[in-house]
């Protein structure tokens, strides 16, 4: 199953990902992304990839 990975060093807390897929991404108190789940079933794939691509600093990738 594809998995989503976050580069916590790169994350700037813009929250585009959270708005895009609120069931996968959240922010912690310092404004750094938190992955609520990492495995991406095929039915969620387009939505999660789209959310990952909306990250302005490319901190998220979905790997096969």
């Amino acid at each position: 199953m594809p998995v989503v990975k976050a580069d916590l060093e790169a994350c700037q807390g813009y929250a585009n990902c959270v708005v895009g897929a609120t069931d996968y991404f959240d922010l912690d108190d310092d404004g750094i992304v938190v992955l609520l789940k990492t495995e991406v079933p095929e039915t969620d794939r387009a939505r999660v990839v789209e959310a990952a691509r909306s990250c302005p600093v490319s901190a998220l990738i979905v790997e096969d």
């Binding site: 807390g13 929250a15 959270v18 708005v19 609120t22 922010l27 108190d29 404004g31």
Partner: peptide, 13 residues
């Protein structure tokens, strides 16, 4: 203020 940003973005939706 990231938490406020998130609350506002969610609230706007």
């Amino acid at each position: 203020w990231p938490k406020a940003l998130l609350a506002c973005r969610r609230g706007m939706g």
